[in-house]
């Protein structure tokens, strides 16, 4: 089985993660533009960050047989620095139509300030103009209100829900997001977001249609193997392989494939890597084999 982790910040991860992801069957990844912990003070650092997403990080992933795509955007937290935000908005058009850019993201609300709404709106218009999918970050604080407000803004701009992935959902938001026709992504992230046992309960209630799981692994305590681990846990819990593949591979492929920049053939033709090429004596199994076995020895539960 192959996985597509549609939300992972690889610039913050080590080659160990790349090796383990490749070994666990992660064939392709999408890296959204986001804040980097330390607030940026110059547009140049944004530009270099975008350059690394379309350049060096893509190259780094390819060394491990993983196809790397990205979404480009001004994140909501840094949208509050309006002088800088305006400068970032000016350089976005240089990037969003590039090869391997599968959408505008991650954008949305953090504090739910007026400035955040302004730049969400502007970027939604840009996505509409460039005919690109949108990857939405929903706020951690006052999530339910912020999620509803995000969808209101998108609909006001005229973005079709089928081109939008709303991320970081939980039990409280999923119903409305799916009901309004959006893709609903769930981030399996320890402590602050969603644990994977809860995810299985959500799958039981809502099935797999328009649902996506991702890791959002970044510079915090997070898990780059969240998608394969959750898949393995789902299998143990009796979820069908078809449903597992739908949420961890086919749905993100379909949602972001609307960009025309992401297709299965991109990684079907490349054989990927043999883990033994990377480190001698390693016995980790690759994807394509039984996911339960591939993850044996790992603690599957993320809570």
């Amino acid at each position: 089985m192959k996985f597509l982790d549609s939300h992972v910040h690889m610039v913050s991860r080590t080659t160990d993660d790349y090796q383990r992801m490749a070994s666990a069957g992660v064939a392709a990844i999408i890296e959204p533009s986001f804040w980097q912990g330390q607030p940026r003070t110059h547009v140049g650092t944004f530009q270099d960050y975008f350059n690394s997403l379309i350049g060096f990080e893509r190259f780094r992933a390819s060394q491990f047989g993983i196809r790397h795509y990205c979404t480009i955007g001004l994140n909501p937290k840094e949208a509050n620095n309006e002088r800088l935000a305006d400068e970032v908005m000016e350089i976005l058009p240089l990037y969003i139509c590039k090869e391997g850019v599968v959408g505008i993201g991650e954008i949305g609300f953090d504090d739910q300030s007026a400035a955040e709404e302004k730049y969400l709106r502007l970027q939604a218009q840009m996505a509409l103009e460039a005919d690109l999918p949108i990857q939405i970050h929903t706020p951690h604080r006052d999530k339910k209100t912020g999620t509803t407000r995000t969808m209101d803004v998108l609909e006001d701009v005229g973005v079709p829900p089928s081109k939008v992935v709303i991320d970081h959902n939980n039990e409280e938001t999923v119903k409305e997001v799916l009901g309004r026709g959006y893709w609903a992504a769930f981030t399996i992230y320890p402590h602050t977001k969603l644990g994977n046992e809860r995810m299985i309960e959500i799958m039981r209630e809502f099935g797999g249609e328009r649902i996506i799981i991702d890791s959002a692994a970044d510079w915090g305590i997070s898990d780059a193997l969240a998608v394969p681990k959750t898949a393995a846990l789902m299998k143990e819990a009796g979820v069908t392989l078809d449903a597992i593949e739908t949420v961890s591979y086919r749905n993100p492929l379909k949602a972001y494939g609307q960009s025309g920049q992401l297709k299965e053939a991109d990684w079907a033709e490349t054989e990927g890597i043999d883990p033994t090429d990377l480190f001698e004596g390693n016995t980790l199994l690759r994807g394509g084999q039984d996911i339960g076995k591939a993850m044996s020895g790992e603690d599957l539960v993320i809570s």
Binding site: P93, L94, Y95, I96, C97, K98, E99, A130, G260, Q261
Partner: peptide, 18 residues
């Protein structure tokens, strides 16, 4: 328009064989 030009230059790979 500068933005339209950026879209065209970068987006050519989305329209022509690459």
């Amino acid at each position: 328009s500068r933005n339209r030009f950026y879209f065209a230059f970068s987006g050519a790979c989305r329209h022509f064989d690459k």
